[in-house]
């Protein structure tokens, strides 16, 4: 029982990170019908920028008050990834809008390779460590003679709470504001949105920017949680977040959140009860199974007929 609860907590933490990345996949897919394969790498540079910024602030400028440092790190990482998301859309995807469907997919893979190699060359292929910054936690259940004690670390609390706040805010943004409405309108009928005065290109750019900013948050969380990053984390996390988006129903915002949590839970329980070596295989198998048996996902809308 204790073991189960502990895995549940770990799974929700990991799932929060996947969910935040998955939102970027699902929103971009929703609005332009394209899988942005470079999105996982945006998460990766988010983590690298966060690490660099963290080291600059603490060693060069001698900042010590952790909350302020983390806030600045987060903002800077979000600004950089947003700028990157905007640039990629502008340079690699927009010129191909209206060409055959595979074209932007190919440039997306190209952008992903460019980013990975850039980071590999400039930062090296070895993992970059960050010593644990936020330690300690709460003991939820005391371990007995034949059970472990259940720990909820402060880091986990921060990650889960931040994710809840971001997702609530984001849901409000999409469902209640005129920007969110414009995004949904572009998703459903771009031509009509333009006829109503919506600047479709700008709305699409903003969608990339939002997805990238959330990926930066996930990158910082990953860095703080695991303490090591390398140029390859974007690929694995990206595929899992993409799986999460597909599982939840690609294009659906609540679906991405739910899918993220489920993938996090599945991965953690799989490692906990079966085998750690095959945890990535679990995620990929789910992707295959969902694509075959449930292509519109758990919360995806089947296409509504247009009369």
């Amino acid at each position: 029982m204790e073991y189960f609860v502990q895995q549940l907590i770990n799974g929700l933490t990991l799932g929060s990170i996947y969910g935040l990345i998955a939102i970027g996949y699902t929103m971009v897919y929703g609005i332009i019908g394209m899988i942005n394969f470079a999105h996982g790498d945006v998460f990766m540079i988010g983590a690298f920028i966060a690490l660099a910024m963290f080291l600059i602030l603490t060693t060069v400028f001698g900042f010590v008050f952790l909350p302020v440092v983390l806030l600045i790190v987060l903002i800077v990482a979000m600004i950089f990834t947003s700028a990157w998301g905007w640039t990629v859309e502008r340079l690699a995807y927009r010129p191909l809008r209206g060409s055959f469907r595979l074209a932007p997919l190919i440039t997306a893979i190209g952008m992903s390779i460019v980013l990975q190699n850039f980071v590999q060359i400039t930062q090296g292929a070895r993992v970059k460590p960050l010593p644990p910054q936020i330690q300690g936690g709460i003991t939820l259940m005391e371990g007995g003679a034949n059970s472990i004690s259940v720990q909820l670390s402060y880091m986990q609390i921060i990650i889960i709470l931040t994710t809840i706040v971001l997702m609530a805010g984001f849901t409000l943004l999409i469902t209640r504001t005129s920007l969110g409405r414009a995004q949904r309108a572009c998703e459903q009928d771009r031509k009509m949105a333009a006829l109503l005065g919506i600047n479709v290109d700008r709305t699409i750019s903003l969608t990339f920017v939002m997805g990238a900013a959330l990926a930066a948050v996930a990158g910082l969380m990953f860095l703080l949680l695991y303490g090591v990053i390398d140029f390859y984390i974007g690929f694995l996390a990206g595929v899992k977040a993409f799986t999460a988006a597909v599982l939840g129903g690609i294009g659906s915002l609540p679906g991405a959140m739910l899918g993220g949590l489920l993938i996090g839970l599945i991965e953690v329980f799989w490692s906990g009860y079966f085998s750690v070596e095959y945890k990535d295989v679990a995620a990929f198998s789910i992707l295959a199974i969902v694509l075959i048996f449930l292509p519109s996902g758990l919360l995806g809308q089947p296409e509504v007929e247009k009369v």
Binding site: R181, R184, A185, Q188, D189, K191, M192, L195, Q301, V304, E305, K306, V307
Partner: peptide, 11 residues
């Protein structure tokens, strides 16, 4: 008001 009405179906 365009041909086919183009109502946003999920709004």
């Amino acid at each position: 008001s365009p041909e086919g009405r183009r109502i946003f179906p999920r709004m």
